[in-house]
Amino acid sequence: MTTVAAQPSTAVQSAPTALNGFVPPPPDKYRGAVVEDLQLSPAFALPQDERIGRAIELAYDRDFSHIPVLDRKRKPLGYVEVAALKKKWEAGEADPTDNVALYMTKFNRSVSTNPYTVITPDTPLADLERFLQDNIFALVTDYGRKFVLGVATAQDLETFVSRRGI
């Protein structure tokens, strides 16, 4: 009977980062979470005929930096950037009784140059993160896109990740 002595392996074990050229995707930092999991505050939006003095007051009460502007049928028209609006008011370039519609940034509705991205409570957070790379915020709408339910920002994603300890 022949005995074979075990020899230590000289093969180098590689880290499980590559196998035949395949590199696995990074772990999902959101763990499959969706927009609903962000627990956003209810949407705050302004009608197009709201006065800027009132808009600034409401924005600071709620600590919002950007506020969607809606038409009479609750269709999103654009948004106001509160800091810029306040600066114009303080510089005398805007009257507190002016309508916010005069100072809003209008949404680009051209589908050919800027396709509309629907963000609903079921949108995966990874998709929301990709959208927010090119946008200041996302309007979260109901499934039929009739109502604005919330406003999501990159800061909301950062808070979510830190809260979960990921």
Rank of each mutant, 00 (worst) to 15 (best):
V161P: 04
P27T: 12
K106P: 04
S65V: 11
M1Q: 14
Y143H: 15
T113R: 12
L132H: 09
T120R: 07
R164Q: 13
F107E: 04
T120V: 03
L139S: 12
S9M: 11
F64P: 02
K146S: 01
G165P: 07
T17I: 10
P42L: 06
P68G: 03
R145K: 13
K88D: 10
T97R: 08
A138L: 01
R145S: 07
G53E: 10
L46H: 06
P42Q: 13
L46Q: 10
S162Y: 10
S65C: 06
D28K: 13
R74M: 07
R62W: 00
F107N: 04
Y30C: 02
P76F: 05
V140M: 09
E36W: 00
S110N: 15
N20Y: 09
V100R: 06
P26T: 08
P124S: 04
F44A: 09
D63C: 02
A152D: 00
A6G: 09
L128A: 02
K106R: 14
L19S: 05
K146C: 00
P27H: 14
T2F: 12
W89T: 13
V151E: 12
Q133C: 07
P24D: 05
F22R: 15
L157G: 00
T105H: 12
S65W: 06
K75V: 11
A59Y: 03
A18R: 15
N99V: 05
Y60A: 06
D156K: 09
I56K: 06
P26W: 01
Y103W: 11
R164S: 04
N114C: 03
A45N: 11
H66G: 08
V100M: 01
H66Q: 14
G150V: 01
V23G: 04
A152Y: 01
L38W: 02
K106N: 08
K86S: 09
A18I: 14
E129Q: 13
R31K: 14
T117S: 04
D142K: 10
L149H: 00
E50N: 10
V161Q: 03
K106S: 12
Y103F: 09
L125R: 12
A5G: 02
E81L: 11
L128N: 07
V118N: 07
E57M: 08
V82F: 01
F131N: 15
A59N: 06
L139F: 07
A138W: 01
L85F: 00
D127T: 15
Y143N: 15
